[in-house]
Design a protein around this nucleic acid. Structure first.
Lengths: 149, 149
DNA sequence: CAAATTACTGCAAGTCAATTGCAATTAATC
DNA sequence: GATTAATTGCAATTGACTTGCAGTAATTTG
């Protein structure tokens, strides 16, 4: 089984190029965060990045500001995996086709509608063959609704 | 389009019965929270419940304790819709087939694996017909992996 | 049904993720 | 290389969520 669909291991030069393309200063910290995200096999939390980069080398507030900036520029995706904090992952440069639930939320006005179920039991059967138990899944759609710009 | 697949409007008696079935005291607050959740068309946050029930009638910590208890008993589901807080919704009494993303997370050890994409573009086309723009979706699977009890 | 036990609640204090103001520092621009 | 704009560290702050404790209400038991 393929466990990662998009391996985006950035080189230091590519990371710096990505910063420049988005009008962000090429600092050591920002470059390092990009590299950490690109090397990680799972989305990272701010405190994980803080631990990996070294608490002596940088303040946690800088990590937060950087993650917020990356998110605003669309470089990363901010996701919650059922924990009480967010994780961050690099987006592929291509079209974004990730994310999924049985809700539609307007990212502008916050309106949320519940949807009918989507049958993903076939996936769950695959997981049970891999030894997983008590599978659950979560599907969410987000977008900008017709009332919003 | 059906926007809610499972309408579970509880009566006051049904709500109290649900509490008893789960070994929870039939108090006014707990009953009211169940009714609020069952009447709502979207999952509610703790502070929304607090506002609706009335800050004079109950302390926010009681709401939190109640939501936690409901979750532990499996009465409700705790979900995050990209906001920085959780929302709560009643589960259907039947089998749970909600939830979704392109990660598998073990709820015991926290191990997270990324998965291949799942094509839900057909759904997104449906949304664009409804006037939605910039659709994104999030799919997450959770379960107990083979290394865990 | 009244006493004893157990669960629930309010209040206040605390934790932790995430944000922000300000002054010092570094990178980008000219 | 000097000026300007962005970045950073530090400290204080917000807001979601938790917890200890003492008082109160619900359940149980005789």
């Amino acid at each position: 089984m393929k466990t990662k669909c998009c391996d985006t291991h950035l080189s230091e030069e590519e990371a710096q190029e990505l910063l420049s393309q988005n009008g962000i200063s090429r600092t050591k910290i920002k470059t390092s965060i990009l590299l950490l995200l690109s090397k990680s096999k799972k989305p990272l939390s701010a405190s994980e990045i803080y631990q990996k980069y070294g608490p002596k080398n940088c303040d946690i507030s800088t990590i937060w500001r950087t993650l917020k900036q990356f998110h605003e520029k669309g470089i990363t995706r901010e996701i919650n995996l059922g924990e009480d904090f967010f994780r961050y992952e690099l987006k592929d440069t291509q079209d974004e086709k990730d994310h999924h639930h049985h809700h539609v939320r307007c990212r502008n006005c916050g309106d949320i509608k519940q949807l009918e179920e989507c049958d993903l039991s076939a996936f769950e059967k695959m997981f049970s063959r891999l030894g997983f138990k008590k599978m659950e899944h979560y599907l969410e759609f987000t977008g900008i609704c017709s009332k919003c710009p």
